[in-house]
C-alpha cells in the first residue's frame, strides 16, 4: 500500500544513478503526451529536478539558451501558462517575443500559418501556441521547421500542464505506479484531463474520471480501448470515486465552452460534484488536491479545500516553470 509523505517533511527526490540517457529523446515538438514513453517522461523529470535547483537560487538565471528566441502566440486568454513559459524562457537566457493577438496583424486578416511563418522568418526558434481549435499546433508543426510547443489546443491537449501535474505528484510520492487519481468535473471540455489521461496511464496511475454523464464524453470508452490505455475508469458518483484516492483533481467548470443543457443547474452540480472538506475526508488522509487553474471558487472546489494543507495548487504553478525550462532545454537544437 502506498502512503503519502507527512506534509511537514521536505520533498525527497529519488536519486537515480546512472541518470537516464538523453539519447532516448526524439521530440522536436511538444504536441501531446500520446507520443511519449515512460522513459522520456522520466527524462523530463530528471532535467526538471536540475531546473528546480536554479529556481531555488537567489539569481534565477542561467546562460544555457543564449541566442535562442521563444515566441508565445496565444489565441486564447491565459495567465499562468503564458507567464510560466515566459519566465521559463527568460530563466534560461532566451529572448522572448509575446505576440499580442488582438493588436497583431491577425486583426487585418493575416492567416494562422502566415502569422507563424512570419515569426519563423524573424528568427524565432520555438513557438508556444495556444489556440481554441483542437489540432492547430499539429498544423503548425507540419508547415514550419521550428519547434512548436502546444500551450493548449481546444478540448484536445495541454501536455505541459499534464507534465507539471505528474512532476508535482512525483515530488510527493516518488513513484507514480499504482497511485489512484480522481479527476472530477468538466472532462468533456478539458484538454488538461485528456493530456493527463495519457500521461497518468503511461506512468502507471489508476485514473478515475468522475462527472455527470453529460460531462463525460461518450467516445471515451472507444478512445481508451483503441489507444490501449490502461487503468482508466469512469464513476458517476463522487463519494464512491473518492474512496482510497491518493490524488484528487477537480477541473474548472468551463463556462465559456458550456453549451446549454449539459447541466440542469449550477446549484445541483455544486451539490453533487463540488470537492469540499467533507468529501475530501473520504479520500486517503494525506491525499493531494491538484487544480490546473484558474479556479471557480465555490463551484468545483470549496475555498477551504483550495487553501488547505492538502492543496498543492500553488506548488503546481512553481513546478510548471521548472518543467517548461526542462522542455525548452530538451527541444532546442544546435544551430551551427
Amino acid at each position: 500500500m502506498k502512503t503519502t509523505q507527512p506534509r511537514d517533511k521536505p520533498n525527497v527526490i529519488p536519486e537515480t544513478f546512472p541518470p537516464p540517457q538523453i539519447s532516448i529523446w526524439r521530440h522536436q515538438h511538444i504536441l501531446d503526451l500520446d507520443s511519449f514513453t515512460k522513459e522520456e517522461i522520466d527524462l523530463v523529470f530528471e532535467i526538471t529536478d536540475a531546473m528546480m535547483e536554479v529556481l531555488g537560487r537567489e539569481i534565477k538565471k542561467v546562460p544555457t539558451l543564449r541566442g535562442t528566441t521563444v515566441a508565445t502566440v496565444f489565441y486564447e486568454p491565459s495567465t499562468r501558462t503564458r507567464a510560466s513559459f515566459e519566465l521559463a524562457a527568460k530563466n534560461l537566457s532566451t529572448d522572448v517575443v509575446n505576440l499580442d493577438i488582438p493588436k497583431s496583424s491577425v486583426t487585418k486578416g493575416e492567416s494562422f500559418l502566415d502569422t507563424l511563418r512570419t515569426l519563423q522568418a524573424l528568427g524565432v526558434d520555438v513557438i508556444v501556441l495556444r489556440h481554441s481549435q483542437s489540432g492547430a499546433p499539429y498544423l503548425a508543426a507540419q508547415h514550419l521547421d521550428i519547434s512548436i510547443i502546444n500551450g493548449g489546443d481546444g478540448w484536445h491537449a495541454h501536455p505541459t500542464q499534464a507534465l507539471l501535474d505528474l512532476y508535482t505528484l512525483r515530488r510527493h510520492f516518488g513513484d507514480l505506479t499504482g497511485l489512484k487519481v480522481v479527476i472530477i468535473g468538466d472532462i468533456l471540455h478539458s484538454r488538461v484531463a485528456r493530456s493527463n489521461i495519457w500521461g497518468m496511464s503511461i506512468m502507471g496511475c489508476k485514473v478515475v474520471l468522475c462527472a455527470p454523464p453529460t460531462l463525460l464524453p461518450r467516445e471515451l470508452d472507444n478512445f481508451i480501448i483503441r489507444c490501449h490505455l490502461s487503468g482508466i475508469s469512469k464513476e458517476y458518483k463522487l463519494e464512491a470515486a473518492l474512496q482510497e484516492a491518493d490524488v484528487i483533481m477537480p477541473l474548472r467548470l468551463q463556462f465559456e465552452r458550456q453549451q446549454s443543457r449539459l447541466l440542469p443547474s449550477l446549484r445541483e452540480y455544486i451539490q453533487l460534484y463540488q470537492l469540499n472538506s467533507k468529501r475530501l475526508s473520504l479520500a486517503k488522509p494525506n491525499a493531494l488536491v491538484l487544480h490546473p487553474g484558474p479556479i471557480n471558487e465555490d463551484v468545483e472546489i470549496s475555498p477551504e479545500v483550495a487553501h488547505s494543507a492538502q492543496s498543492v495548487i500553488e506548488e503546481q504553478v512553481t513546478n510548471g516553470v521548472a518543467v517548461r525550462m526542462a522542455l525548452l532545454y530538451l527541444i532546442t537544437r544546435g544551430k551551427r
Binding site: P20, I22, I47, P63, T64, L65, K335
Partner: peptide, 22 residues
C-alpha cells in the same frame, strides 16, 4: 553540474543530461 553553463550547447544536436547541483 556545469551543463547549463557549457559553451558548446548551441552546437550540439542532442543536449547532455543535466545532473544534480547541490
Amino acid at each position: 553540474d556545469i551543463t547549463l553553463y557549457r559553451d558548446d550547447l548551441s552546437s550540439l544536436n542532442l543536449k547532455p543530461i543535466v545532473q544534480r547541483t547541490d
